[in-house]
Design a protein around this nucleic acid. Structure first.
Lengths: 345, 345
DNA sequence: ACATCTTTGGGGAACGTTACCCACATCGCT
DNA sequence: AGCGATGTGGGTAACGTTCCCCAAAGATGT
């Protein structure tokens, strides 16, 4: 009753022997390569099925391909990212590619660790979702392996990008609130100082869009931006600050749904009601926003489409590494819900 | 201006040449293996840093190790799983291991695809989080590679398990509600027919625990189980059914927080209030439950501890593949919040 | 008839790493 | 002086694929 030696995994050599052909022939069949007659294909495929052969990815990686796409997610708690992932996996469902996720944990060091790990593992392509990494790091990644960056403005020859028009999205929110009759519309943003990130990060563009739209609606004097962070805690803190103003805003545009959660939290705590005392709008149109008891007005970026576009660009670039880099910008739409209403008189 | 050939990646051979030692020596240093003097170690490490060398995982995989742990998540939307993942990654942060996630999409076929892919890629260990796969499949995985299954009762020699005591968890909820004075306590469960799964799946055990606890509190006549699914939609459907009863329950024990979300949705829709008209309790103690405006009473399984234990078991088994399989059961705790209160008179 | 092309099949050298060897030097002990 | 033990370093054969070759046979054109 000793621990019997686990059976060695079946390799291409076993298949070749069983089908009475060369390993080269098996490899050709596996890759649908030129130089194999229909009869041989059939024979080899039968042997593969009979033996239950599966190619060893490590060995393949040594030769250049792993059929693996890595997706870096900075925060698995953010309910927006699953939408993107749906688009990615759906687009790859019928291909040989397998999607593996790497957790980034909202840190530059952590993002670097996981992207390096993906490169070490010979991934065929990498999708960076809303990375906080420096531009230099993303270019390093893009130079090593085909890369698409989702949610980062600005172009680079080293990688392709997919973003939504954040300025437009902010304008949709401000327009909606203004149309309802709000004038004192405040905004909670994610604090940013790094000059490159100020032009590239969606949070910065949304703040810009907010200011621009306020001016356009003649509400310049009511521009009120609180600078915290894109977390629930940031929304909570920002709201407490806003509620302490001598003249309170009647509406808050939170830069992300996760921030809006913090807003609602703080409003509940203060004994106020939404939208009675305060209208609240978010950004991302997460499942949380759609949730009945919350019913948060939000901006839909079309996460699915983002994922689909990222895959398209990535496959193109895997096929032709020399092609020029491309940028795709999607238009956001507004989804009004019960958290926004006319201001109290 | 032709597309300059990307520089070849630096290999162990380059390091050896640069340090003027053999590749064997470099390999020894990399693995902290026996047979390298301190001077040599220093020399090699310097060369590694100077060249920015990183080991190729594919080549390593061919020799047996990839320093990669695969975690299969059946549903990236379920807010409970990030807790587990935190425990996993925290335990592995100081090791050489890299965690990669595979999306399972709540499907048996999809789970099989991703687990096979992980095996093909030579992962050193696999953690299956709340899998719906058949026992046979999990044993196949466990035979191929060290495996820990989280959230599945029943033991197998092929893999280790980490679960919480779901019967106990259900008892905590019923006990809490009974102590508040509730008698008509209903339960929404996830429908299950497969006999093996009936003994292994947490949802089935929670339903058992509910029935058991109701009897223990002398509430046998009020046992009322609605069989839908562990989704928001399932909670919604189940609640509509319960609200249509001639004698309505005063409290609902939802088998999971995600189900409780559906309950709250339906209650809002019906114009009723929580906990005024209906007390609601969930299971998993997700961030959603802790969210202020919701404030859902829930059972905490200690997701972090689950992840930590899974890693411990996994590393043990990687070190000694022959050791007996182990089962860890954690005790759940109740987290009372505002969604449960004394029933209206 | 011959030359040339196309199709079909296989031999074998990589890819980067590890780990089993062996070789040699040095040391401590009888 | 002789011996085994210990420490240090390297040579080299795998691991499982892919893909560049070449060879042979058959098809086609003159």
């Amino acid at each position: 009753m000793e621990p019997q030696a686990r059976p060695r995994r079946v390799t291409i050599v076993d298949v070749a022997r069983h089908a009475e052909v060369s390993t080269t022939a098996v490899s050709k069949v596996l890759r649908n390569a030129y130089g194999a007659s229909p009869e041989m294909r059939a024979k080899v495929r039968r042997a593969i099925d009979e033996l239950g052969y599966r190619p060893n990815a490590g060995a393949r990686s040594l030769r250049g391909q792993t059929y693996t796409i890595g997706v870096m997610l900075p925060d698995i708690r953010n309910p927006f990212f699953p939408e993107i992932l749906d688009g990615v996996t759906a687009s790859l469902a019928d291909t040989e590619y397998q999607v593996l996720l790497g957790p980034g944990f909202n840190g530059e060091k952590e993002e670097a660790r996981v992207t390096e790990a993906m490169i070490d593992r010979g991934m065929d392509g990498i999708i960076l979702v809303a990375p906080i990494s420096s531009r230099a790091h993303m270019e390093r990644v893009g130079t090593a392996v085909p890369t698409v960056v989702i949610g980062r403005h600005g172009s680079s020859p080293a990688y392709d990008t997919v973003v939504d028009d954040d300025v437009e999205g902010a304008a949709l929110v401000v327009g909606h609130l203004a149309a309802l009759g709000h004038r004192r519309i405040a905004h909670i943003e994610h604090h940013e100082t790094d000059p490159t990130r100020l032009t590239e990060m969606p949070n910065a563009r949304r703040a810009d869009g907010y200011r621009l739209a306020m001016r356009k609606h003649g509400l310049e004097e009511w521009i009120d931006v609180v600078s915290t962070s894109y977390t629930q805690e940031g929304g909570h803190r920002g709201t407490k600050e806003l509620l302490a103003r001598p003249v309170r805003p009647t509406a808050v545009f939170a830069g992300a749904d996760i921030v809006a959660m913090g807003v609602l939290d703080a409003v509940t705590e203060a004994g106020l009601s939404v939208p009675g005392d305060l209208s609240v709008a978010g950004y991302d149109n997460t499942t949380f926003a759609a949730f009945g008891p919350i019913s948060l007005t939000s901006v839909d970026q079309g996460g699915r489409e983002m994922g689909e576009n990222a895959v398209r660009l990535l496959l193109e670039r895997i096929a032709d590494r020399g092609r020029r880099s491309a940028q795709v910008t999607l238009s956001p739409t507004l989804v009004p819900r019960r958290s926004t209403a006319r201001p109290a008189k």
